[in-house]
Each structure stands twice: as structure tokens, then as C-alpha cells.
Design a binder for these strands. Structure first.
Length: 679
DNA sequence: AGGCCTCGAGTTCA
DNA sequence: CTCGAGGCCT
């Protein structure tokens, strides 16, 4: 190599370095500060020159060159990356009270010394780690499980607001934490393009961002409009003199280093300021062009953070306040059919998991085919889910304009998915039923589970997995077999030690002495629920008398009409059922109803109808119900004009409203107790 | 027959 | 909790 040539190379290297610095500077002005100082055309000219020069001298291309933001070849898979300092998740809180409790915990742990908080928006995207060595961006990874994530360096390089080099005067090494997200407008645009191309749509910007970052081909990612807000530092080496003392200072340090931080972060001196911030952004979230799902609250002082430490799961110096999302959109991945103990086929939507009012929803009942028809919900649809009341999620509607045409309509199967028997829809019923009866494994399993359930024979430990195992092992075919179980058979089952087996057998033993009404309910006679079971047991007193009752004797019982009576007769006509009852009696299961308590008839509650709502302090719901029943009262589930008392506990439901509407007497817990005592 | 009022049945997640 | 349907009262 001649002298002139090596001189040329040096000149070219200089030019390359200058071009790269300049382009990165303009990237920073444009993508981070949103304040460009040159025109797009000028920027393009610089970029073109760099591309040309690098093409002529491929040996001079560096990995942090702006051209390399899109240059990498598609990867075969994502390499795992172990985070040098783990990416912990934050504890979630859902209410003002919980934020106050967090504040109280922090203060107590810090012996009451003054505490400042930083409140920041919780961007609904995905957390990533950006590793810099000697000031250069070397590796980016997803959060993964917090310890190990996936290497998405090439994809992160396509995000222009991530600096390829830190804008610091020293070669600092650090791990920067941030949230990658997609702007709403861009998300909508992306989905429109995908629909036009017949591709499946993303349910929300978060999924779109996640999907884009996990593209194997960075060229695809480069076309996706991703951006990032950084919010923290995992570790930092080489910036000791500039090292921040507080989280707030850390954020300005990150800003100085060339990162994009969220402008709406606020330093709060009191917890009330934090609550104001939460309330404000809860209201104003729609005004942002990116989605947020809450507010992150952090103790500002890093020294205090250190003293507070962390639990195994999350730091004690921060919480994530999640807005009470009442509704969410997600995608119906599939509609499956469940077979209940009565053979009813229930369609259930399997959903792309979505956070909703404090829990992750992944399935929701669709009740029956009529409802699916009425709401026109198809497999693959984007749907709106809502938590009706408190816990149970409901699919409200399908978002029809998100359709790509690839969605499939749901059809109720003609054969039972569990046993292959015919499925029928009886006249006047909306439910489809499997006619397999006890030949259907699902119905056998569910009826045994029902028998053992808490309100029936209350056999603790007999949950879904144990019942499945007992059936598979051939130990239990009908509920009568439960009472023939041997210790060694049970102990031989998977995940069952001697101790668990003993516990199970003693729970079974205990169930033999319960009053008749539990057994009647446990049998699962059609149209005989908890209430009717009690009425029947009290009326007839013994199983023998119930089993030999005539139609008219049955309809004499309160709330028993022709349908229920016929159903009871049918149950006892069936020889297999009579055989089961004989075996239960032989095993020593109690077949009598206890006499009513002496106090019944004297109590002011005798003959009264009571409705309970909300949580009581000193009783469980069940205990309160029993107490009313023992005094000759009735407990009902809904408030009407016939209701005598509504007992209101903490966090009452809609029944309280109804009671006031109808002018029904409302009791608090203390008044209720007095009434129980006879006052 | 019509209109309540209740009950039964199925259901979700941590 | 909600829906559907059985039962009872008018």
C-alpha cells in the first residue's frame, strides 16, 4: 500500500467520522428535541454521501454508523441476553388508598424523614434495556422475564431517537431503561395498511410495538413508526463526578446524554401532589398521542431508594398506579366449547390476554350461540371487553371496522367435543346440550366436582386436577365411589403424599355427617339448586321420604312446580341413581335433615326475607346466611318489594341502591347483629 | 295471561 | 353478576 493511498484513507476516515457525527447530531435535533436545524433535503444529502463513501470503502463501516440503523441482515432467532442488573417489575396498585398506603409504608421504613416522589406517565409499550460501552450503543434487549431478555439490538437501532453514541464528554458505560411505544396515529395508519394488504390487524398500539420490535428482519422494523422514552438507569460506570443523587437528576442526566425523556414527569413534595398528578392524567390521557395505562411513582432520593431495597419481586421504593380501565380492546383468538355438568355447551372466547381493571383477562364466556349471533362475534375479531360489575369480564361488541375478512364465524358443534354424542337444542331452550349424560366424561367430571364443592358436600382438596386424576386412575366413576377410596390408592396419585391423602380422606369422612340438604343439592338434580334442596330436605326430613314422594306431594313444597317435581321424580326413577343412593347410605352418609333450631319462630327474623350485600366484618357471607336461616328467616339474592331487610356491609353492590329506591329497611352490621340476638 | 320474583346455572382471576 | 326460565300471584 503506497503512502499516498494510506493518506487518502485517512482523509476518508476523517470525512466519515465527521459525517457520522453530523448525522447523529441532526438525528438528535430531529428525533429527540423535535427541533431540526437543517432541512430534510440537506439531511438526505449528508446521508447519501455517507452511504456512497461507505459503499466504496466497506472496510471502514462501523457498527454505530447511522447507516447501520437499518443495515443488519434478518436474524434467524433472537439471542438471549442476561441483564447485568435485573429489570424488576413494579408492584401494581389500583386505587388512591393503595397509593396512600405505599406512602405510609415508605415513610415508616424511613423513620418519618422527608420524602419526595417523582411521578411519571406509565407508557403502554414494552420495556427495553439499552447497553452502552465506552459511550457507544452496543446492545439492546427486551425485558423478558426481568433477568433474561432477547437481543433486539438491530431493531432498536432503527429507532432514530436512540443515540448511537452518548452525548457526554467521557466514555461512559451504562444500561439505560426505557419504554418503546407506537404513536396512536401511526398505529392506525399501520393497521389500515395491513387491512389493505389482508394482513391480521394489531389489537392496540402496545401489541403493534411489541410485534414490530420482535421482527426478525430489521428492515421491517425500520418501517414501523416506533419511538422510545427512557426513564431510568440500570448501572453507570465512568460518570462518577456527574453521578446523580436523585431520580429526577438521573432523568436530566439521561436527557443530557442524548436520550428522549418524557416531558410530563413531575417532582412531587407530598403524596397529595402525586394523587393530583394521577387524577390529572387519568382525565387527560386521551389528549396524549401515545397510550398510557397509569402513573409510576418513585421515591426521588437514590440513597432512600437504596435503604428501602426490594422484595423478591419488586422494589419497595416505587409503585405503578394503574388507571381503572373499565374497557379494553383485544382479539378473539378462538372460541372453544365447554361442557358443563348438565351437558350444557357453553362457548367461551379465548382472548389475547389484556389488562382490565386490575387483572389479566384471557377468556370470557359468550353464554350461548344466540348471543354470539346477536353481537356478531367472529374468531379473529377485535372486540371490546368490559368488566360488568366487579369480576366477570364480558365481550361487549366486535369492532367491525377492524375486520380483514380473515375472521371465521362460530358454529355450535353438532357432536359433543368431549364425548362425541349428539348435541340437541330442546324446544324453548336457548342452550345446546350434549345428550351423553354420564357417558360423557365432561359431565361425569363436572358432576363429581359439583358434589364435592363447598356449598355441596364441601370435600376440601377435591379440586379439578384431583378429580381428573381419580377418574383417569379408574378410582372414581360415580360420586358413590368417593366413599370407597382407600388411603394407599389416593397416596399413589401424582403430587399426592401420604399427608395430603390423609387430609382428603378426613374431609370425605367429615362430609358424611352433613345435613340432608347438602346431599340433595350435591346430587345435581336438574332444577334443584341450593334453595330448593333445602326446602325439599326440610319438608321431607329424610332421603327415603323424598325419594318416594309423589308428584302432588312434591308440588306442595314451596317453589316447587310441575317442572321441578317432574325432574325430581325422574331422578329417583333412574335405577343407577337409586343404586348410588343405596351405596351412599351404606357408606354412612347422613340421610336426615336436622330439626330446626329452637330459636326459630321466636326471632324477629322468623318469616322475614333478608338480602345481604357488601362484605361484613364479623361474618362470612355464608355464616350470615346460616344465622338468618337458623332463626327462621329467608335469604334472597335480589332486592324487591317483598324484601324485609337489606344488610349492608363494606363496598355494597347495586342492591343497596335498589333497597333505597324501593324504600326497603337497610341495616348496617351492628343493627343486623342486634336483630340476630332478638332485639 | 301477564308480570313480578326468585332460583338455577355458568362464569374469571389471583 | 347476568341471563333465562320456573313458580306464584293477580
Amino acid at each position: 500500500m503506497g503512502v499516498a493511498e494510506s493518506e487518502d484513507i485517512r482523509v476518508i476516515e476523517d470525512r466519515l467520522r465527521k459525517l457520522r457525527d453530523e448525522i447523529e447530531f441532526h438525528n438528535y435535533r430531529y428525533y429527540v428535541l423535535d427541533d431540526p436545524v437543517i432541512s430534510d433535503a440537506e439531511y438526505d444529502r449528508l446521508m447519501n454521501e455517507l452511504v456512497r463513501l461507505e459503499a466504496a470503502h466497506p472496510e471502514l463501516v462501523t457498527p454505530d454508523s447511522p447507516t447501520q440503523r437499518v443495515g443488519a441482515a434478518p436474524a434467524a432467532a433472537f439471542a438471549p441476553v442476561v441483564h447485568r442488573s435485573p429489570m424488576m417489575s413494579l408492584a401494581n396498585v389500583y386505587s388512591v388508598e393503595e397509593i396512600r398506603a405505599f406512602d405510609a409504608r415508605v415513610r415508616r421504613a424511613l423513620d418519618g424523614e422527608p420524602v419526595e416522589y417523582v411521578a411519571e406517565l406509565k407508557i403502554d409499550g414494552l420495556a427495553v434495556s439499552l447497553v452502552y460501552e465506552d459511550g457507544r450503543f452496543v446492545r439492546g434487549a427486551t425485558r423478558g422475564d426481568g433477568t433474561t431478555g432477547e437481543d433486539v439490538t438491530h431493531n432498536l437501532k432503527t429507532i432514530r431517537s436512540i443515540p448511537m453514541r452518548l452525548r457526554l464528554d467521557k466514555p461512559v458505560s451504562m444500561d439505560v431503561r426505557g419504554e418503546v411505544y407506537m404513536v396512536r396515529r401511526e398505529f392506525q395508519k399501520l393497521n389500515e395498511e395491513r387491512r389493505a394488504a389482508g394482513e391480521p390487524l394489531f389489537a392496540n398500539p402496545r401489541n403493534a410495538a411489541a410485534g414490530s420490535l420482535r421482527q426478525l428482519d430489521p428492515k421491517v422494523t425500520a418501517e414501523r413508526p416506533l419511538d422510545i422514552f427512557v426513564y431510568g438507569i440500570g448501572y453507570v460506570i465512568g460518570a462518577e463526578d456527574a453521578a446523580p443523587d436523585t431520580h429526577f437528576e438521573a432523568l436530566s442526566f439521561l436527557k443530557k446524554a442524548g436520550f428522549r425523556t418524557n416531558p410530563n414527569t413531575r417532582l412531587c413534595r407530598t403524596v397529595d401532589e402525586v394523587l393530583d398528578y394521577c387524577a390529572h392524567w387519568g382525565e387527560m390521557r386521551a389528549s396524549l398521542d401515545y397510550e398510557i395505562d397509569g402513573v409510576v411513582v418513585k421515591v426521588n432520593s437514590l440513597a432512600q431508594q437504596e435503604r428501602l431495597g426490594a422484595t423478591a419481586r419488586s422494589p419497595r421504593w416505587a409503585v405503578a398506579y394503574k388507571f381503572p380501565a373499565r374497557q379494553a380492546t383485544t382479539v378473539v383468538r378462538d372460541i372453544i366449547v365447554q361442557v358443563g355438568r348438565t351437558g350444557t355447551l357453553t362457548p367461551v372466547a379465548v382472548l389475547e390476554p389484556v389488562e382490565l381493571a386490575g387483572s389479566t383477562v384471557s377468556r370470557a364466556t359468550l353464554h350461548n350461540e344466540d348471543m354470539i349471533r346477536a353481537k356478531d362475534i367472529r374468531i379473529g375479531d377485535t372486540v371490546v371487553v368490559e368488566k360488568g360489575g366487579d369480576v366477570i369480564p364480558e365481550v361487549v361488541k366486535a369492532v367491525a371496522d377492524r375486520r380483514t375478512g380473515a375472521e371465521r364465524e362460530f358454529r355450535m358443534p353438532e357432536k359433543c367435543p368431549e364425548c362425541g354424542a349428539d348435541v340437541v337444542r330442546l324446544e324453548g331452550e336457548s342452550a345446546y346440550r350434549c345428550v351423553g349424560g354420564m357417558a360423557c366424561p365432561a359431565q361425569v367430571r363436572e358432576s363429581i366436582l359439583h358434589f364435592a364443592s363447598r356449598d355441596a358436600m364441601d370435600i376440601e382438596g377435591m379440586g379439578p386436577s384431583l378429580v381428573a386424576q381419580l377418574i383417569d386412575a379408574g378410582l372414581v366413576k360415580t360420586v358413590a365411589d368417593i366413599y370407597d377410596l382407600k388411603l394407599e390408592d389416593v397416596a399413589a396419585l401424582e403430587r399426592m403424599g401420604k399427608k395430603s391423602a390423609e387430609n382428603l380422606l378426613s374431609a370425605i369422612e367429615k362430609s358424611k355427617s352433613y345435613p340432608l340438604h347438602r346431599l340433595v343439592f350435591a346430587l345435581g338434580i336438574r332444577h334443584v339448586g341450593e334453595r330448593s334442596a333445602r326446602d325439599l330436605a326440610e319438608h321431607f326430613g329424610t332421603m327415603d321420604r323424598l325419594a318416594s314422594a309423589t308428584f302432588s306431594e312434591l308440588t306442595d313444597v314451596r317453589d316447587v312446580g310441575p317442572k321441578v317435581a317432574e325432574s325430581v321424580l325422574a331422578f329417583f326413577r333412574e335405577p343407577r341413581n337409586r343404586e348410588i343412593l343405596r351405596r351412599l347410605a351404606d357408606a354412612g352418609v347422613n340421610m336426615k335433615e336436622a330439626e330446626k333450631g329452637v330459636s326459630a319462630g321466636k326471632s324477629p327474623l322468623a318469616g322475614k326475607t333478608v338480602v345481604l350485600t357488601g362484605a361484613l366484618e364479623r361474618f362470612t357471607r355464608k355464616e350470615a346466611e346460616e344465622a338468618v336461616l337458623a332463626r327462621g328467616g329467608r335469604v334472597s339474592g335480589s332486592v324487591s318489594r317483598k324484601t324485609d331487610y337489606v344488610v349492608v356491609g363494606r363496598d355494597p353492590g347495586s342492591k343497596y341502591e335498589k333497597a333505597r329506591e324501593l324504600g326497603v329497611t337497610v341495616l348496617d352490621e351492628r343493627e343486623f347483629e342486634r336483630l340476630l340476638e332478638g332485639g
